[in-house]
Design a protein around this nucleic acid. Structure first.
Length: 374
RNA sequence: GCGGAAUUGGUGAAGUGGUUAACACGGCAGAUUGUGGCUCUGUUAUGCGUGGGUUCGAUUCCCACAUUUCGCC
């Protein structure tokens, strides 16, 4: 067995951990945030821009690439890195499991797999654990994910139990189907909603199947903050220390901090890029909406504590103008800043772990972040 | 100079003799967490050119004026 993850240090007062993950396309340090590049592009950004942001790893989506351009096209091009000409770091593909949550109806989920209607042309599609892994093998990302069901919230205990058992069977099938075991790590996914015993059961059984890393799914699907943190706690204590832990779909700064404190290593989220396209910026002093009139003649940078390309070169007033004029450069500059913001947050968390002062960091961060009363 | 038509919010415009003047854009604000969707939600004219009149009541009918516009001399 080939261990990709190396635990470098544990923080003294919490479960936070510093580590690194090795792939054939490079090593990234954790905790780390992954920007989402659904369609083999982090929306609006060029590879140069991604490289300058020092993204440890980015995420692409199996479902979308399966539909367009098709996994065979990507395989023929020499794999996702070649296809994108993205050489600066590792890539992870999501399995398409989340689309069960967002596109399919409960009645379309069977033991065999999930029936989808293509969002592009409405045609009927069928995705199975084997098919998902086969597509991911062809796409060729460094980390690939088991095909799971991410049930909506809330759902009954009975349904969740049925769902996690099915997800476990799918995980087993997917693992058997996985061919590129030498250069593609395969991760298992823990579900179980807000039910402590189901999270424990799902975690233990998934770990028994022995994956290269583990992720916690089914979080940030509409539950409150307290429940969200419990979901993490319930699952994470049953995950082995020598494997990477990935909290799926989480990207609010506070959630990243609280996840890291609980022992999470990596996160992914559309938040920074979606917020950017909608004209919002994450700053040290809270989230701001650049469309607000108060920025019309504000010639300062988005965040005076940020040294990203956008903050070094552009003013709020100009970016506001771009956003209100629907110019794509606005979304691009804000995407650069928002990703830089989360990446910097992760670097600061890494420092805090080294210095054993992560709780103090959290306190100071929140004091500034909520100062503006957003 | 004569005759006709028009005049509704920032814009384009619906509309009715009777409580809250449609809709769209724009403006203002909010949402956004394993991305279908630069998307979604809320809000935005105490007033319908001005002054009179008719009427229980007029943005809606009548008159005058102003402005715009079309045609004719």
């Amino acid at each position: 067995m080939n261990l990709n993850y190396k635990l470098l240090k544990k923080e003294k007062n919490t479960n936070a951990r510093l580590g690194e993950f090795k792939t054939v396309h490079g090593i990234f340090k954790t905790p780390m945030f992954m920007p989402v590049g659904t369609n083999a592009t982090v929306k609006t950004l060029s590879n140069d821009e991604l490289e300058n942001l020092n993204c440890g790893i980015i995420l692409c989506n199996t479902y979308h690439l399966w539909l367009r351009p098709g996994e065979d096209v990507i395989e023929k091009s020499g794999g996702i890195h070649n296809f994108m000409n993205y050489k600066s770091g590792p890539i992870l593909t999501d399995s398409g499991g989340f689309q069960v949550f967002s596109l399919a109806k409960p009645k379309d989920i069977s033991e065999e797999g999930v029936k989808f209607k293509s969002h592009i042309d409405g045609q009927n599609l069928f995705l199975t654990p084997e098919k998902s892994i086969e597509i991911q093998n062809k796409i060729g990302a460094d980390i690939i994910m088991s095909f799971d069901e991410c049930p909506p919230y809330p759902v009954t205990y009975e349904y969740m139990k049925e769902s996690i058992n099915r997800t476990l069977r799918w995980a087993k099938r997917g693992k058997l189907a996985h061919k590129n075991t030498n250069n593609q790590a395969l991760f298992g996914i823990v579900q179980g909603g807000e039910f402590a015993d189901l999270r424990e059961y799902s975690a233990k059984k998934t770990v028994e199947l022995d994956f290269d890393g583990y992720s916690i799914g089914g979080v940030s699907v509409g539950e409150n903050q307290e429940t969200k943190l419990k979901m993490i706690d319930y699952a994470i204590k049953f995950l082995p220390e020598n494997k990477l832990r990935y909290l799926m779909g989480v990207g609010e700064p506070i959630d990243i901090i609280d996840g890291v404190i609980r022992g999470v290593d990596i996160f992914d989220c559309v938040l920074p890029t979606r917020l950017a396209r909608h004209g919002n910026a994450l700053t040290s002093f809270g989230k701001i909406n650049l469309k607000n009139q108060k920025f019309k003649v504000d010639f300062s940078s988005i965040d005076n504590l940020c040294d990203c390309y956008t903050c070094k070169n552009y003013t709020k007033a100009y970016i506001r103008h771009l956003i209100t004029s629907n110019e794509s450069l606005g979304a691009r500059l804000l995407s650069i800043h928002n990703i830089a913001f989360l990446n910097n947050l992760c670097l600061k968390l890494q420092e805090a772990i080294k210095n054993d002062n992560i709780l103090e960091f959290r306190k100071n961060f929140l004091k500034d972040y909520y100062k503006r009363g957003e």
